[in-house]
Nucleic acid binder design. Sequence first.
DNA 1: TCTGGGGTCCTAGGACCC
DNA 2: TCTGGGGTCCTAGGACCC
Length: 422
Amino acid sequence: MAIALIDGNNFYAACEQTVDPSLIDQALVVLSNNDGCVIARNAKARCLGILMGQPYFKIRHEIERLNIKVRSSNYALYGDMSQRLMALLEKHCEELEVYSIDEAFAKINRPPNNNLRTWARQLRENIYQDLGLQISIGIGASKGQAKLANHLAKTMPNHAGIYDLGNVKDPETALANVAIEDVWGIGKNIAQWCRARRINNAKQFRDMPSQTIQAKWGVIGIRLQKELQGLSCLSVSNKKIAKQETCVSRSFSKPITEIEELRQAIARYVVLASAKLRKQGQYAGTITVFARTSAFASIFYSRSATTHLDLYSNDTSVLLKSSLGLTERIFHPHHLLMKAGVVMKNLVGDDCLQLHLLERYSPKEASHRKHLMTTIDRLNQRYGNDTVKWAICGTSKKLGPQRKYLSAAATTRLAEIPVVNA
DNA sequence: TCTGGGGTCCTAGGACCC
DNA sequence: TCTGGGGTCCTAGGACCC
């Protein structure tokens, strides 16, 4: 059994190009919420030296000078394209684990001749034909190897987006060519630690004494190493695992200094988080709200406050009541607050919801409330997020994100479908 | 002036219990 | 002066991912 990692190349940028043909052949970057920094770019923009994570305001002039196109992130579009991609992959793989918006692990049986290239090539063709998206496929004996192979599929131009660590001539050299920073699971800190010990690439990490790794990085480090050695420690599973927490947070487009504004912001996030809970079929037992200055502020300020609910809930008005009471505890009038959020924790599913002697509502009321929430969710889903609003959320523009370069909801809104002139 | 958002897993240490 | 041992639960913080 082999494991493949399949992902969309430059996914966000590619999605933008599929719905706007004028972007094809152009260098393109996609910005984060609030048009903060670069979170995706296509090959052309990369060649022009645009890096991931660069703050937009720092490179705006350069981007204009180089005539690079810019888009604000459009998650409705990416989410929808992702669903289509995953549905297609499911058809072509034995077992599929959706790992992120543009990635999935797949289990595949190796054919007797050990050659999976034919399967992979066919899959790439199908996806391109149906969605206009390019994918890369990495194959190995474990998730770690599959990730590594996927990296090689992208960086070795003569492999046409497919790399099978279990069926190539010289995997050792390829491994030695993967910088330690590019290994899945190795971030800034572990990489720094490795470099200091002259462990500079994936091969050296795989072969270093495991006791050394164990002593510093514990089970996580050991697991990483074993995965690279081809010993599978992380299983591939298509089961949806219930979330342990759910968070909604945003940066503001301008700093806020009034408690009323903070209250509105928290209210908006609670409304979104409650809808998320209902979609996931979960109820929260604990709510944390937080507010902070910009991470780059001269004096950093950050406060959080937590409350435990008497009864688990996913009813927006119940959660609003509990969380708004916490706002005073996190507000500070002399700090320019730039970001706030709410975290729902201690989540339980429909199936293991404990009944309580002192139920909040009578059975009849409870059923009414549930019906009300479902109706609100449906209306908002169908006609857009703010169709039914809670008055407490207010109308302040500061709290909404800045998205100057937003593309159309081309796949999720009938009125915005791209028009093709024959 | 402007620097994203939403997650997971693991560990250490404190509080508390018997 | 002496001041146990073993366990659980919770939280904060570190590290990482896309």
